[in-house]
C-alpha cells in the first residue's frame, strides 16, 4: 500500500513535469525578471543599468523637485485609487448583469444551455482590440447610440451625449470585455446546486425572491467570488479599454505601466507599479482562499 502510494506520487510529479516547466517559463520566470527590473536603476534609453536602486518604488509616492529634494506626490496613488474604483465598479456591474444571466441559462433545457453558454463565450473569439474599437463606433459622436437617440428625438441634431472618453465609456468597455468571466463560474456553481434544496425551500414557503437571496446566492458564493476575481484582476490592469474609450485622458494603472515601458522608458518604475498591482491582487486572492475554505467547511 505504502510503496504503491509513493510510486503514485512520484508518477504524479513526473506527469506534472510539463506543467511545472510551462509554469516556470511562462509565469514564474517573467515574474522574477520583473521583480529584478523593479529594483534596478533606469536607463533613459530604455532598459536598465545593472545597479541596485529602489527609486522605481520611491517614485510611486515621491517626486524629486528642482532642488533635488523629495516631495510627496499623490498623482500615482490617485491613479491606483481610480483604477481600483473602476475595477470594483466594473466587477459589481458585471455581477449584477452576470448573475441573472447565469441563473437564466442554468434553468434552461440541456440543449438550450449549451447554445447559450457558447454564445456567452463568442466575444472571446475575436481580438479584444477590435471589439473595443466597435464600442467607439457605438458610443462615439454620431455613433449608433447618439443617432438612435436623435432619431427618436430625445436629443437634437447637433447635440452630443459626450459618451466617449468618460469613465462611463471605460466601464462599459471593461464590463463588456470581461463579463463572460463572471457568467461562466457562476453558471458552473449553479449547475452544481442540488435542485432538491430549491424544492425544499419552496416547500417551506419561499417566494422566488427568497429562493434567490436565501438559497441560490449563498450556495453559489464560490462561483460569485471566483467570477468577481476573474473580472476584477484584468480590469485593474486593463489598458485597452481605458486608452481607446477613455482616450487616455485619465490615466489608469494598466496604461501607466504600459506608458513606462513604451514611451517614458522608465522600466524600473513600470515594473515597480506592476509589482504593487501584483501585491494587491495576491492579497485579494489570499482573502478569497480563506473565505472559500470557510465555505467548504460548511458545505
Amino acid at each position: 500500500m505504502n510503496i504503491q502510494g509513493e510510486n503514485k506520487s512520484r508518477n504524479n510529479l513526473i506527469g506534472l513535469l510539463p506543467l511545472w516547466i510551462v509554469m516556470g517559463v511562462f509565469m514564474i520566470g517573467p515574474l522574477i525578471v520583473m521583480a529584478f527590473v523593479s529594483i534596478m536603476e533606469s536607463n533613459s534609453y530604455g532598459g536598465i543599468h545593472l545597479k541596485f536602486d529602489l527609486s522605481g518604488y520611491r517614485q510611486i509616492l515621491f517626486d524629486t523637485n528642482l532642488f533635488d529634494e523629495m516631495e510627496f506626490n499623490p498623482a500615482y496613488l490617485i491613479i491606483i485609487g481610480r483604477s481600483f474604483l473602476l475595477a470594483v465598479a466594473a466587477t459589481i456591474i458585471s455581477l449584477i448583469i452576470g448573475f441573472p444571466v447565469a441563473y437564466y441559462i442554468s434553468r434552461q433545457k440541456d440543449s438550450v444551455k449549451n447554445i447559450l453558454i457558447f454564445l456567452v463565450t463568442i466575444p472571446f473569439w475575436t481580438n479584444l482590440l477590435i471589439r473595443t474599437f466597435a464600442w467607439i463606433i457605438i458610443l462615439g459622436k454620431d455613433g449608433v447610440i447618439e443617432n438612435s437617440f436623435g432619431f427618436i428625438g430625445i436629443i437634437g441634431d447637433d447635440d452630443s451625449l459626450n459618451l466617449m472618453y468618460t469613465n462611463t465609456a471605460i466601464l462599459i468597455g471593461l464590463v463588456y470585455s470581461y463579463i463572460p468571466l463572471m457568467v461562466l463560474p457562476i453558471y458552473s456553481s449553479m449547475e452544481k446546486l442540488d435542485v432538491r434544496l430549491i424544492e425544499a425551500a419552496s416547500d417551506l414557503y419561499s417566494t422566488r425572491i427568497n429562493l434567490i437571496f436565501k438559497i441560490i446566492l449563498p450556495l453559489t458564493l464560490p462561483g460569485i467570488i471566483g467570477g468577481s476575481i476573474l473580472v476584477f484582476v484584468p480590469c485593474l490592469g486593463a489598458f485597452i479599454a481605458p486608452d481607446l474609450l477613455g482616450g487616455g485622458k485619465k490615466l489608469l494603472l494598466g496604461s501607466l505601466i504600459q506608458f513606462q515601458f513604451a514611451y517614458a522608458r522608465n522600466w524600473p518604475f513600470g515594473a515597480a507599479i506592476a509589482m504593487v498591482l501584483l501585491a494587491l491582487i495576491v492579497t485579494i486572492l489570499y482573502l478569497n482562499a480563506r473565505i472559500n475554505r470557510r465555505h467548504e467547511q460548511n458545505a
Partner: peptide, 9 residues
Amino acid sequence: FQQYALFPH
C-alpha cells in the same frame, strides 16, 4: 425529503 435536503449553509 428522501435525502433530507437540509440547507448546507
